[in-house]
Write a protein that binds this DNA or RNA. Structure first.
Length: 639
DNA sequence: GCGGATCAC
DNA sequence: TATGGTGATCCGC
């Protein structure tokens, strides 16, 4: 975005500034100062509830959660820097005295209900944002009782305290966006009132840091700061021209111009939306990374007879039954083990990576993670290619250490809710990903039965599969092209897996390295030093030890390899009669452009694999093989 | 409709 | 030793 900013001419900027100014005027015209909204936020809710049921915790630093993750911490613990969403073992280091209390949602739900009974007295249609937060439209109650927003807030907070013994904070403002910001100002056990006055709102919002705004998270904050120099809401307006030039004009979304400008103006929603029904239901578990297929299947569902608590499909099914839901889209979520640090280190050392290169590595990381897919897949993550500015630090953390999340979904013809159905389709989704090493799996069902209400679709219209199978279609031969119901594509998948077994050698080969690069390898200082010295032995040059082997030379080698691949092997695939693959005989019409490309890639991958093993037997220093793998991925990625 | 990404709590 | 779980939404195919 910075680059795009730089490209703008003075003319462009003044043009966009005009457009932005017009938008600002339009938005200003929509400003609604007629409502009074109140945002209530319970203070350290879970921690406070736990203290209530165990008063001996009072005054001591305490956190709700475990060694893996903390949900919330009381104010004593916060003084040490302990925060929600912090891993427990880190919190321990910050505060060795810290007391841990496991989460108990039953308790929190109970107290949440008590608070909501109080909220109801002020707004029957209040919006519950979570167990411990709610928005109330107190316009009417203020009028009826002739009280100010501040007075109502005082009374409500007192009521909550009497009812529960807990304290809360409140913000009163003309809209929800502002009310939320306000409730944070005098936290804990305090309140802040922003009057329904345009000047007051503008003065208030001008100095608010953008991160305080709901919807602006870590990433958006970083983009706005880094690319536009926007730190406060006021600057949203000042840099309106730039924002206008680079953000979409769509009317919704937290990443659109209208949203950013309204934040700058302190404009937010004032309506009471109708209660929205849920759109999906899911269950997921984190576990210690494994690539054991039986174990992975077992995480989805235990073998018959053995019921484990951590059975994802069963948990989901139970929840669905509770809510009486049936859905027809099933999504499998996967979190792969973190990208091996040692593997990354080898890349760094081998290629003297610049920042640019590191971005590439991140792009290739998913390919490296999963060599089988890498050969067929042409879609690595695009995150690194969006022109975001990356600090070296950011790259190191996200490129090397960040785990990768994927999802795979099917939409079925029938609505499902039984554990068997969920499991059947989930297993197929998982099967297509094997082999893989995972540390999390999750299942989500969406596209519920009720979704249809109000949808313009014609229930009598047949699906494509039905259309073909039922014989309405005159082109029965379509079936001969291998078009199947995706749900029933097991055979095809099996074929892929079979074809790809040879490719797994890339991965298998790694285990023959002097020290293995297995995913989720433990990284210790000792380990790392050992690895570096082994890199040396294997002929890898290290920074500062480079003679003729400069980064340029490295690039040259890669480019040479690329050139060879492109000229010789790219065109060797011939479609006989423009129809049949000369290598394996598979039939594919010429208009299946992408499918054909993928098919060629597959044969290419096969070929590369063979080449690599022959090189491996001839010479093969670690360095050479890294070159080879790098070039291979580069080529496939570019394809 | 799918998959990645972001966000809230 | 060790960095969660649930749900929503948006964007670009």
């Amino acid at each position: 975005m910075r680059a795009q900013c730089a490209k703008l001419s003075a003319n462009d900027i003044s043009h966009y500034q005009t457009v932005a100014d017009r938008r600002i005027l339009e938005l200003e015209a929509t400003r609604d100062l007629s409502r009074i909204w109140l945002h209530v936020d319970m203070d350290a809710f879970y921690a406070a509830v736990e203290t209530l049921s165990n008063p001996s915790l009072k005054g001591k630093p305490m956190a709700v959660g475990g060694m893996s993750m903390i949900s919330t911490a009381n104010y004593e613990a916060r003084r040490f820097g302990v925060r929600a969403a912090m891993p427990g073992f880190i919190a321990c280091k910050l505060c060795p005295e810290l007391i841990f209390v496991p989460t108990d949602f039953k308790k929190y739900t109970h107290y949440s209900e008590l608070t909501r009974k109080v909220f109801e007295k002020y707004d029957l249609n209040f919006l519950a944002a979570s167990l411990d937060e709610a928005y109330l439209d107190i316009t009417e109650v203020c009028k009826e009782r002739g009280m100010s927003g501040g007075e109502i807030a005082e009374e409500l907070r007192k009521g909550v305290n009497e009812e529960t013994g807990l304290t809360c904070s409140a913000g009163v403002a003309p809209n929800r966006l502002l009310a939320k910001v306000c409730s944070d100002i005098n936290k804990p056990n305090g309140q802040f009132v922003l009057p329904n006055d345009r000047l007051a709102v503008m003065t208030f919002i001008s100095s608010v840091p953008i991160r305080k705004i709901g919807g602006i998270g870590k990433v958006t904050e970083h983009i706005l700061k880094d690319a536009f120099g926007i730190n406060t809401c006021e600057e949203m307006i000042q840099k309106g021209g730039l924002l206008c030039a680079l953000f979409s004009h769509s009317t919704a979304g937290s990443h659109c111009l209208v949203f950013f400008l309204s934040v700058g103006l302190g404009i937010g929603k004032t309506d009471t939306p109708q209660v929205r029904s849920r759109k999906s239901i899911s269950s997921e578990r984190t576990f210690s990374a494994t690539d054991d297929e039986a174990l992975l299947y077992q995480k989805l569902a235990s073998p018959v007879g053995i019921v484990l608590a951590a059975d994802i499909a069963d948990m989901l099914c139970t929840d669905m039954k509770k809510e009486g839901l049936c859905g027809r889209t099933l999504t499998l979520k996967l979190k792969t083990a973190s990208f091996g640090f040692l593997a990354s280190l080898q890349f760094l050392l081998a290629f003297h990576l610049t920042v640019e290169d590191m971005i590439k590595v991140r792009r290739y990381a998913p390919l490296l993670m999963d060599s089988r897919r890498a050969m067929l897949c042409t879609c690595p993550t695009k995150a690194g290619s969006r022109g975001m500015t990356w600090t070296v630090d950011k790259i190191l953390t996200s490129c090397i250490l960040q785990e990768m999340v994927r999802s795979r979904a099917v939409t079925l013809e029938k609505y499902i809710c039984s554990c068997e159905d969920i499991l059947k389709h989930a297993s197929k989704l998982l099967k297509a990903e094997l082999p893989i090493s995972l540390r999390l799996m999750g299942l989500r069902v969406s596209h519920f039965n009720e979704d249809k209400i109000g949808a313009p679709s014609d229930p009598t219209q047949k699906t494509l599969t039905n259309f073909i199978v039922s014989g309405d279609s005159s082109s029965h031969e379509l079936l001969h092209y291998g078009i199947r119901d995706p749900v029933d594509s097991n055979n095809q998948r099996d074929l892929d897996v079979h074809h790809c077994t040879s490719i797994d050698n890339v991965e298998a080969e790694k285990t023959h390295e002097p020290s293995s690069n297995k995913i989720a390898d433990k990284v210790t200082a000792k380990n790392m030093l050992g690895e570096v010295s082994q890199c040396k032995e294997a002929g890898l040059s290290l920074p500062g030890q480079i003679e003729g082997k400069s980064a340029d030379r490295t690039n040259q080698v890669i480019m040479d390899n690329e050139a060879v691949f492109s000229s010789e092997q790219r065109d060797e695939l011939v479609w006989v009669d423009d129809y049949k693959c000369s290598l394996c005989g598979i039939e594919m019409p010429s208009n299946f452009v992408e499918e054909r490309q993928e098919h060629s890639d597959f044969h290419l991958a096969e070929r590369l694999q063979k080449d690599e093993s022959s090189i491996d037997s001839r010479t093969s220093t670690l360095r050479q093989r890294l070159f080879f793998i790098y070039a291979m991925y580069t080529y496939i990625y570019d394809q």
